[in-house]
């Protein structure tokens, strides 16, 4: 069913400072699906997440991103957010002096397109924080300032839980987390998961996929998706590493001793 398609990425090519990073990505996410993109460092995973959110530094040089049937090439990040796209950052920025609660309220108002009464907001925030096991004092702290790695990731998940996006992209949200934080993050993703939502997990490791089972797994290398499969592909990557996929796709040659 065509209407099920949340996002359709066709032959996407992206350059940063005139250097090609993504070289023709094809990916389609339907409502209700969870996709995982895995790949070695430097494969273009973070570029993909940033370009989907509309970062101005990344120039789309070819291809097309269609979101809910609309080409979103010309849309600024805030317009994408208001249309239901969300990116959980790998390295969220600190904004000194701005309390988390104020930020979250402004975000929620912006995304919902209307002012939410303050009491209702507080109640919603409290519920979400309790669900994610985030302590009360969190909302009074300044955005990501002095946050530990785990706190930053929880904060990202809290934002996701609150904004309830239709398409959530998580950029290495699992990296550097201890097992408790990983569970919080995974629970957050699982509770967002539903028939209307699409989720794109970008990760280096298979670890999180033990908690969130993806419907599809793709391997990104050298700016292209070189292999797709189901969750078993992730397990295979876990046990065998990336080299075999790279070799299979011709990106990496087996070492052959040659005689001079």
């Amino acid at each position: 069913m065509e209407t099920d398609i949340l996002i359709h990425i066709e032959n996407l090519q992206v350059s940063v400072d005139e250097k090609p990073i993504l070289k023709g990505i094809n990916l389609q996410i339907r409502r209700g699906e969870v996709h995982a993109i895995m790949g070695p460092n430097g494969s273009g995973k973070s570029t993909l997440s940033h370009v989907l959110m509309g970062h101005p530094k990344y120039a789309v040089t070819g291809g097309k991103i269609t979101y809910k049937g609309q080409d979103i090439a010309g849309l600024a990040p805030d317009e994408r957010a208001r249309r239901g796209i969300f990116l959980a950052f790998q390295y969220p920025m600190a904004v000194p002096g701005v309390p988390v609660s104020k930020f979250l309220r402004l975000s929620l108002n912006a995304v919902r397109g209307k002012e939410i009464p303050i009491l209702e907001f507080r109640k919603t925030l409290k519920t979400k924080m309790e669900q994610l096991g985030i302590s009360d004092n969190f909302s009074g702290r300044y955005i990501n300032e002095g946050f530990s790695g785990g706190e930053k990731k929880r904060h990202e998940i809290l934002q996701m839980a609150l904004l309830e996006p239709e398409l959530a992209i998580l950029d290495e949200t699992d990296s550097g987390l201890d097992i408790d934080a990983l569970k919080v993050v995974s629970n957050g993703i699982e509770s967002l998961r539903g028939p209307e939502k699409g989720i794109l997990l970008i990760t280096h490791y298979q670890r999180m996929l033990n908690y969130v089972t993806p419907d599809f797994v793709h391997v990104l290398a050298n700016g292209q998706i070189i292999k797709s499969g189901d969750k078993n592909l992730a397990l295979e990557l876990e046990s065998k590493g990336y080299d075999w996929v790279l070799e299979e796709s011709g990106l990496k040659k087996k070492l052959v001793l040659t005689e001079e």
């Binding site: 940033h50 959110m53 509309g54 970062h55 101005p56 600024a76 990040p77 805030d78 994408r80 957010a81 208001r82 969300f86 990116l87 950052f89 969220p92 920025m93 904004v95 000194p96 002096g97 701005v98 104020k102 930020f103 402004l106 975000s107 912006a110 995304v111 300044y142 955005i143 934002q159 904004l163």
Partner: peptide, 22 residues
Amino acid sequence: FYLMSRGLKENEAQALIINGFI
């Protein structure tokens, strides 16, 4: 980019950074 990715318009994001600064 971080603030705008949460739905804030460019001038709102800038004002928020300034409010935080002061």
